[in-house]
Amino acid sequence: MSAEERWRRLAALTPARIALGRAGAGLPTREVLRFGLAHAQARDAVHAPLDVAAVRAGIAGLGLATLAAASAAPDRATYLRRPDLGRRLDEASAAALAREAGGPVDLALVVADGLSARAVHEGAVPLLAALVPAARASGWSLAPVTVAVQARVALGDAVGAALRARAVAVLIGERPGLSSPDSLGIYLTFAPRPGRTDAERNCLSNVREAGLKPDLAAFKLHWLIAQALTRQLTGVALKDESDAVLEGPAPRPALGAAPGPG
């Protein structure tokens, strides 16, 4: 096998930019153009606004109530310069969520624009469609889904605390890469409250059709939520061992069948 053929085989296995070829001392024009397109798609993902109405309509189609919220960052430019403001609710949202809070619930779900509205537009509803039936089958009580704009991950702590949730799962657009402008991240935190650290969360990353597919991400998230509610913790003390449930000759369990405590 020639070196060229070996490189072609490797390139077929990864979206990474390898085996691009040469044109003199530079890259071929097609590769320069592909790179420019990928860079533009990443920039668009960061700056494009979240279509809140469409996202809420999609979630409502799953039979879920929704709430709207915003962080303390008043616009996109401020959001990008001031991550701290994206971690706090603005006053109006904090008051509205407090009014909506009822009795304690097991789980609050937050759908947030983060750094890629595209990821939310494409991935949030499919993931919820796989997760929510399993959550209901497990008997968990759910708060209305909060759709948040100009949001960082830690905004979920304030939302979860306001809605009196035992745990909060934040579905948020991840920082785009040059091959993944549509990547959704999921962050799970037990006993959410402002001041929680990233070490107290569990993360599922690269949720998209070309990465961790929504149905498998929902399976893993369901497993983690079940463990979090049982063990009363998340973060570095809770390891994702859901793959062990999928191994072996037995068929893959239904999402609604929560494993016992590990």
Rank of each mutant, 00 (worst) to 15 (best):
R9Y: 07
A16D: 15
A16K: 14
R22P: 01
T29Q: 15
E31N: 09
V32M: 13
A38F: 10
R56K: 15
A57C: 03
A60V: 04
D75R: 03
R76K: 15
A77I: 06
Y79M: 01
R81T: 05
D84L: 02
L89C: 03
D90G: 13
A94S: 13
A98N: 02
G103C: 13
A112D: 07
E122F: 03
L128D: 03
A134K: 04
A135V: 01
G139A: 03
P144C: 01
V153R: 03
L155C: 00
G156N: 09
D157N: 04
A158L: 02
V159I: 15
L163E: 02
V168S: 11
A169F: 08
E174M: 04
P176H: 13
Y187L: 00
L188T: 12
L188P: 13
T189N: 11
R201P: 05
N202T: 04
R208Y: 11
R208F: 09
E209D: 15
L216Q: 10
A217Q: 09
K220Q: 14
H222T: 07
W223N: 01
Q232P: 07
Q232Y: 08
L233C: 14
K239E: 07
S242V: 05
A244F: 03
V245Y: 03
G248T: 10
G248A: 11
P253G: 05
A254F: 06
A258G: 07
P259E: 05
G260Y: 05
